[in-house]
Design a protein around this nucleic acid. Sequence first.
DNA 1: GGTCTTGTCGAGACTCAGTATCACTGCGCA
DNA 2: TGCGCAGTGATACTGAGTCTCGACAAGACC
Lengths: 146, 146
Amino acid sequence: MTAGSPLVAALDHAGHRLTGPRRAIADLIAERGASTFTAADLVADVRSRRLGIGRATVFRAIDLLVAVGAVERVDLRTGEHAYVACVPAHHHHVICSRCARTVEIGDLGLGALARDVARRTGYRIDEHRLELHGLCPACQRAVALA
Amino acid sequence: MTAGSPLVAALDHAGHRLTGPRRAIADLIAERGASTFTAADLVADVRSRRLGIGRATVFRAIDLLVAVGAVERVDLRTGEHAYVACVPAHHHHVICSRCARTVEIGDLGLGALARDVARRTGYRIDEHRLELHGLCPACQRAVALA
DNA sequence: GGTCTTGTCGAGACTCAGTATCACTGCGCA
DNA sequence: TGCGCAGTGATACTGAGTCTCGACAAGACC
Ligand SMILES: [Zn+2]
Ligand SMILES: [Zn+2]
Ligand SMILES: [Zn+2]
Ligand SMILES: [Zn+2]
């Protein structure tokens, strides 16, 4: 596990201290794979495994990983804030509303679209966010059986 | 003002009671025009104008207007939840990070893009959200002078 | 207009996410 | 191995949003 996650590598590379709590939280996040998770999920993990990590530290670690680009925030349809571990390059997410599994997709011409919108509205576009919400193949099957 | 806002009309049309507080909140929202506002903004308006409307009622009215499609939730870059009054048809928003003014843009081929993503990932896409954040022309000038 | 039913309201308690504070600790470096 | 400072945990706090409940008023029907 110490060998591990690109999350830890990202922190290291950005010149942040590799503390025990940070490694532990990075591991918890890595376990989630490509699924979204909330801060509350991690806090629950920490408690159920008796890791002895404080609530505040969980929030601090998430913020740090977001700042470093190893984790991104996504806004669920419910309004909840969730996060996903992902590559630091620009991309977007397809998110399953039922099981939280995500797939990354490329920019798909949105950069060009944003420039076009900028030209037509006069706005200077600094950032764009696209999120696609739906059901992953497995959940479609599961729902069909219900 | 009573003649007014399409917001009130939307409530009426959807078969909801047109109560005093709802009209008042609809008016407050109408005053914001195409700018985003938070629930806290409305609560502050209500208090500063001594409208005597309860906090809970403000939240309830917003929820109702969202349900009816007369208002949409947008997620600011800070993570705050904000809202905008807008037409019930599918569209997206360009949002100024400085003054909250927005411009609506059409789907611009995103529907097709979503279908393409669905085909390639196997996900069933139910909803997509695109938000463009930046600076409106006026704020660009204001920032340039600073 | 009067009356009735039912949806809505305001107040206030409550929950839960996220932040602030501060004394202590352990990471990284010499 | 020891030192300095970033990082941490406990705890208190803030602020968004929800729930409950008795009072009330919108609209329907007469
Ligand atoms: Zn799924
Ligand atoms: Zn993009
Ligand atoms: Zn602006
Ligand atoms: Zn669209």
